[in-house]
Design a protein around this nucleic acid. Structure first.
Lengths: 128, 128
DNA sequence: TTAAGTGCAAAGAGTTTGCAAATAA
DNA sequence: TTATTTGCAAACTCTTTGCACTTAA
């Protein structure tokens, strides 16, 4: 595989933007290289993920977001206001231990977000 | 709001199928009432969710799945083989307490799944 | 000259919307 | 009637695929 200009730009964009959707990555890349196509962005994100240079997280709604592999964290998504908070992965260590012991399940804390209600929305009125 | 035949069939299907996608709910309903449209299924699932009769979970990839509100559980999704396991919600109690204390975040354990590698896939060869 | 990479158009999932016809209060 | 609900078609978002053109080894 060749590190083409397009691929380098996509990787740079992911590193710079932090949890950006493919669409957002594409727009960022197009500021420098307007002809780069969204198809290339999707293909490159796939490739970079197989090389363990980026990873994606499903926030629940809509498109997944991509981050550089260095930034491993757990995402807390508020399903009331949509806000995304990042918290340290080691918060899941106990849970991961329990899941491994009881179910043989090897947890990947960064691939799916945790959903709930953020502080502000809790204060603004209940859990529902 | 009226509990129309269509709505009752959708609710019955969700209760019967357990974590089914809108598409699967629609197919099930159509075995009894072939003219029921997928649009009606989407609208009804929305409605039933606002009434707290059903809830949906994002498994990561593809369409969300719907369950009757009684079946609250945490979903473990294997990102290697796609298998979905259901485990008791109280496994998250400690984590929920920590998140509430440290971030004011009120965790909803059933809305998003946990991702990782299941026992069989771990045994079949590593974590990646 | 050949394999890899790209852009473009089209197609595919999943979902929502506009609107007219059907239904029940 | 009148508001609600439905079905259908079309639109819309997100993603993948087919294919011809380009590019670098």
């Amino acid at each position: 595989m060749r590190m083409t200009p397009q691929r380098q730009l996509v990787l740079d964009a992911v590193r710079e933007l932090r949890h950006a959707t493919p669409e957002q990555v594409c727009q960022h890349v197009q500021r420098t290289a307007p002809t780069v196509n969204i198809t290339t962005v999707y293909r490159t994100l796939d490739l970079l993920e197989r090389l363990n240079l980026v990873r994606h997280t499903h926030l629940g709604h809509g498109a997944p977001t991509y981050s550089a592999d260095e930034h491993e964290h757990v995402h807390l998504v508020c399903h009331r206001c949509g806000r995304v908070e990042e918290v340290p992965c080691d918060l899941l260590d106990d849970l991961a231990g329990t899941l491994r012991q009881r179910f043989g399940f090897d947890l990947d804390g960064s691939h799916l977000a945790l959903s709930g209600t953020c502080r502000d929305c809790v204060n603004a009125g209940g859990t529902a």
